[in-house]
Design a protein around this nucleic acid. Sequence first.
DNA 1: TGACAAGATGAGTCCTGACTCATATTTTAG
DNA 2: CTAAAATATGAGTCAGGACTCATCTTGTCA
Lengths: 180, 180
Amino acid sequence: MRADARRNRARILAVAQEVFAERGPSASTEEVAARAGVAIGTVFRHFPTKHDLLAAIMKELRERLIDKAETLIAEGDPGTAFYDYFTFLVESSAKIGTVVALLAQEGTSIEPGEQVMALNHTVGALLDAAREAGTVRPDVRLDEVMALLIATTHGALAAAWSDDLRHRTVALVLDALRPH
Amino acid sequence: MRADARRNRARILAVAQEVFAERGPSASTEEVAARAGVAIGTVFRHFPTKHDLLAAIMKELRERLIDKAETLIAEGDPGTAFYDYFTFLVESSAKIGTVVALLAQEGTSIEPGEQVMALNHTVGALLDAAREAGTVRPDVRLDEVMALLIATTHGALAAAWSDDLRHRTVALVLDALRPH
DNA sequence: TGACAAGATGAGTCCTGACTCATATTTTAG
DNA sequence: CTAAAATATGAGTCAGGACTCATCTTGTCA
């Protein structure tokens, strides 16, 4: 792969994240190209389909999210790591927006979607650890947690909550998971 | 207004609710026309803009939602009416889908939006009653409740939760609002 | 450095979906 | 029953956005 091609690919990917975060997944490929300072054909050379572009973003994002989870597992208190991660994901969605696309677009399609599967697995591990540490009610199930996560994440993005409101709301949701 | 015109208007409105519930707000006006058994021009005669059509749906929906609230206030236990209403709204969104458009489309626009204002007011009344009856934590604020409502509603629709999962998730969320 | 393959360009195609309007049809008042 | 007014019709216009490709440009390697 030529050096300039690699540079362009990276630049397009970065810019696309911004654009889709701001305008939602219906933003035009034209705008991505324009903001990347590149002709539209170049975008389609690297990502033959708009869907491919979105998929690439989601893949990168997933890696970032899983990195964060591994850091928390390695360094953090198992009792609080779960809560920290939940909060981190909601914060990310408020800023990055794409998390929502990740969770939603896949959620509505038929197949579970590998991104969601991976996240499921990660959150599940943190949840188990927290349960064992006694900081999460033992009867809380993973699918409920994922549902709360999707809901909070969607809400934070769709309704553009203020920082303050977002914090208070997440606190309420997480309180629901704590033992008594 | 001619009799057939009135009939058509009503039919279009009813069908449009179905279509938008199934396909989301991006469903085409063509499809609404087709399913209503009417030419596309007729749809545009009654609703000059797609936005007008959505607005009409939302208005009708709002009236239905507020009716329900008034019934609950009049007949129900003030301690549980709030919880029943919250549940009712989420159930509705799971079926009607349009609630989401109502809460979201408006939420992202600049002005608060009269639909959301009205719902705010209604939920606020129920929340106050429940607080007074002691079935809701005194420190829970209306904006937090609305945030949870939007989130749950979005989540239920976007992720197509099963009935069972929806019930459990709503139960968790509502537990977060109960005193201890 | 030269030449060629990889890459970039952007005007153009195709399609979808909102909206229009000249014409045909129906309702209804008288 | 009839004519004017109100409606309905649906082919057509227009705009936006995904995607293509003939042509030009540039990186790289001998």
